[in-house]
């Protein structure tokens, strides 16, 4: 057998590579369960607290989540102030007097249709976001543009261990949907050196990029970290899915977060 003959056979077979993987939508007989409450609450510096209460729907239904109206939502700030939140929109409740302060611990109680849910969160001391650095990316996975950029949030992690951050990246008014969180398990007390990797959200020359940084407490870090890791479905199956680790007690999904908020925008040039 001559080698060129073998080579030609091999080459003709390489066309088979394209057949190796295929995707199709399927219909599964998924369990239908009683709807669960989902609470999403936030309080930021000098801003009123906002709490949204919705319910889950079955997988096969449209993404139309029932808003929970007429709930009894109350908030206390750990300094003796407690108030009942006002329903300002359907399923959306807002505080009237209590606003966020760094270092304060807030307690939330939601009573809806005979169920009671509680949550606590502490607003961490702010870590100053001093700027954002843009750099040409050397990361070019198949299908990406050769010239794409990544951004580095500029801040110095405090010496004390236990800081957590969440980032929200926007490109020309379009929000990057992936959840980005970080903590100081790596690089405690050092200037940040970790970029925001967004391979499926390319940044190119001329883009207007906004970065929002939240300083969050550990339970909220755990919530977003687990929301990210347990919902992913990578090749080979990814992590065994579960519900994220929530700080809400009483059996509701979601989170209640007191966090600081900073925003910086730049144009990539």
């Amino acid at each position: 057998m001559k080698t060129n003959k073998i080579a030609s056979i091999l080459l003709s077979l390489t066309g088979a590579w394209g057949l190796f993987s295929c995707e199709k939508e399927i219909t599964l007989d998924l369990n239908s369960v009683n709807a669960k409450y989902v609470i999403e609450g936030e309080i930021t510096p000098n801003q009123k607290a906002t709490v949204r209460v919705i319910k889950t729907v079955d997988f096969t239904e449209p993404n139309d989540f029932p808003l929970v109206k007429g709930a009894n939502v109350s908030l206390s700030d750990g300094s003796g102030n407690t108030e009942k939140l006002v329903e300002t929109g359907e399923g959306v409740y807002q505080s009237q007097k209590i606003v966020g302060f760094e270092g304060k611990t807030y307690s939330l109680t939601v009573m809806a249709e005979g169920n009671t849910f509680t949550a606590q969160t502490t607003m961490p001391t702010n870590v100053k976001l001093t700027g954002i650095k843009v750099q040409k990316s050397s990361f070019s996975p198949p299908g990406s543009t050769a010239e794409n950029y990544i951004i580095y949030p500029q801040f110095i992690d405090p010496a004390a261990f236990g800081n957590s951050y969440r980032f929200i990246q926007t490109r020309n008014e379009e929000k990057y949907k992936s959840i980005i969180v970080a903590n100081d398990n790596i690089g405690n007390g050092l200037p940040n050196s970790r970029p925001i990797l967004s391979p499926d959200f390319e940044i190119v020359l001329g883009d207007n990029v906004t970065l929002e940084m939240h300083c969050i407490d550990k339970p909220i870090y755990d919530y977003f970290f687990s929301l990210n890791s347990v919902q992913g479905n990578g090749p080979g199956g990814g992590t065994i899915p579960t519900n994220p680790v929530t700080n809400i007690k009483g059996g509701a999904l979601g989170y209640f977060s007191a966090h600081t908020q900073q925003k910086i925008s730049i144009e990539v040039k």
Partner: peptide
């Protein structure tokens, strides 16, 4: 493990 339901959180 397949989902039994869905909801919206953090957009």
């Amino acid at each position: 493990t397949f989902p039994s339901g869905k909801y919206e959180v953090a957009g």
